[in-house]
Simulated assay, not measured.
Amino acid sequence: MQINGSIVLYNNDVELLKKAINSFLNTELEVKLYLIDNSPTDNLKYLSSIDPRIEYIFNDANLGFGKAHNVAIRKSIENEVKYHLVLNPDVYFEKSVLEELCGYMQSHHDVANIIPKTFYPDGRLQYLCKLLPTPAGLVVRRFISSDKLIKKVNKKYELRDFNYDKILNTPFLSGCFMFLRVECLKEVGLFDENIFMYMEDIDLNRRLHKKYKTIFYPNVSIVHVHAQESYKRKALLMSHVKSAVYYFNKWGWFFDGFRKNKNKEVIRLIKKINKKL
C-alpha cells in the first residue's frame, strides 16, 4: 500500500523544507513525495536528488496552494494510491506518525481526513480544530484591534473549551497537514482551484465532512512553524480577503444551514466530552 504526499514550494527556507521532506520519507511504508514548485525559477530542483522517492514538478508559474496540490493529487488518483498527504513545507514530525495515522484510517473507513495534535516549535499547542467560520468572526480576527474581543471570538472559534486530548470529528481542520483518503476525494472533488490561497482547506474539509468524518487525532503530534504571513504582508492579506469573499459567496454569508448545524453539533459534542472528564 502506497502513500503519496505533496509539498507546494515557493522560494522556501531550504533547511526547514528539508525537515519536512525528511519527516515524510522517514518511514518503512511505501511512499512517494511530489515537490510541486510554484517558484519563479527551478532552483529547488536539486532537492529531487535527495531520495529516489521524490518527484519534482516545476510549474513555471504560481498556481496557488490548492491548484498546485491538485497536480499531485490527480497523480495519486491516476495511480490508484489509497492515501495522500497534503503537507506544508514548515511542518516536521517524528518517525511513526504516518504509520499511526495509516493504521487508524485502515480501521476507520468512514474517515476522509485526519490531522494529529500540532505544536509550535516552542511547545505551545496550536488550536487547529475550528468551527466553520462566519463573516463577522473573520472580520474581528483580522481587522479589529481589541485583544479582549479577539480572545472571546477565538475561544469559541478555535474550540478552546476542548482540551485537545480526545479524538474529535470537526468540520474544519487546518490545511497544514491533511492525511486524505483518495477515494473520498474522487467523490467530493479536489481543492477548489478558484481559491488561490487561504480558505481552500476549509472549503475542502467541509465538503469531506458532509459525507465522512474529518478527525483530529491527538495520539501522535507534529510541529508546525506557522509564520502567519497574511498577518505580516499586505499582498497576502488581500489574497486572504479575496478568498474569504469567494468562500462566503459559495456557501452563504449569513444563511448557511450546514455551518449553523455543524457548529452547534461540535459544541454539543465537546460539552459531552468535558462532562466525562
Score class of each variant (00 low, 15 high):
Leu138Phe: 15
Lys148Tyr: 13
Phe119Tyr: 13
Cys102Phe: 14
Val140Tyr: 11
Ser107Tyr: 03
Val81Asn: 00
Leu128His: 05
Tyr157Thr: 01
Ser76Asp: 09
Met105Asp: 01
Leu149Tyr: 03
His108Tyr: 07
Gln126Asn: 07
Leu138Lys: 15
Leu128Pro: 00
Pro121Gln: 13
Phe119Met: 08
Asn113Lys: 11
Lys148Glu: 13
Lys148Cys: 09
Val97Ala: 06
Leu131Ser: 04
Glu158Thr: 06
Ser107Arg: 02
Glu78Pro: 06
Ala136Asp: 04
Thr118His: 05
Lys75Gln: 14
Ile144Cys: 13
Ser145Asp: 10
Lys95Leu: 07
His84Glu: 08
Arg142Asp: 06
Asn70Thr: 12
Ala112Ile: 14
Val97Thr: 11
Ser96Pro: 08
Gln106His: 10
Ile77Lys: 06
Leu168Met: 10
Leu131Gln: 03
Ile144Phe: 15
Asn113Tyr: 11
Lys82Glu: 07
Tyr92Val: 07
Asp110Pro: 14
Ser96Val: 10
Asn79Ala: 11
Leu159Arg: 00
Glu100Gly: 11
Pro89Arg: 15
Lys156Cys: 06
Phe162His: 02
Cys102Val: 14
Tyr157Met: 08
Ser145Phe: 13
Gln106Ile: 12
Leu87Met: 12
Phe177Ile: 08
Glu158Ile: 04
Thr170Leu: 07
Arg141Asn: 07
Gly175Asn: 13
Ile167Cys: 04
Phe172Gln: 00
Gly103Lys: 15
Gly137Lys: 12
Phe177Pro: 02
Lys117Ala: 01
Asn154Val: 02
Lys156Trp: 09
Cys176Trp: 06
Val97Trp: 01
Phe93Glu: 01
Lys75Glu: 13
Gly175Asp: 05
Tyr164Thr: 02
Tyr164Arg: 02
Thr134Leu: 04
Gly137Asn: 09
Glu80Lys: 15
Pro171Leu: 15
His69Tyr: 05
Ser145Lys: 11
Leu87Gln: 03
Cys129Arg: 12
Phe143Glu: 09
Met105Arg: 00
Met105Trp: 03
Arg142Cys: 13
Asp122Met: 03
Asn169Trp: 07
Leu168Gly: 02
Gln126Thr: 14
Pro171Arg: 15
Ile77Tyr: 04
Gly103Glu: 09
Pro133Val: 01
Val140Thr: 07
Tyr92Gly: 01
Ser146Glu: 06
Lys95Ala: 08
Phe179Glu: 02
Arg124Glu: 13
Glu100Asp: 10
Gly123Trp: 09
Asp122Gln: 08
Thr134Lys: 10
Lys95Ile: 08
Ile144Gly: 12
Asn163Ser: 12
Ser76Tyr: 09
Ile167Leu: 00
Asp165Gly: 07
Asp147Met: 11
Lys95Gln: 07
Tyr83Met: 04
Leu101Glu: 04
Tyr120Trp: 10
Ile114Asp: 00
Phe172Thr: 01
Asp165Gln: 13
Cys176Ser: 14
Pro116Gly: 14
Val71Cys: 03
Leu173Tyr: 11
Leu128Ser: 03
Ile115Leu: 01
Phe119Trp: 08
Lys130Leu: 03
Val81Gln: 03
Gly103Pro: 14
Val97Leu: 12
Ile150Asp: 03
His69Lys: 05
Ile115Glu: 03
Leu128Ile: 09
Val71Leu: 07
Glu94Val: 06
Asn88Thr: 08
Glu78Tyr: 14
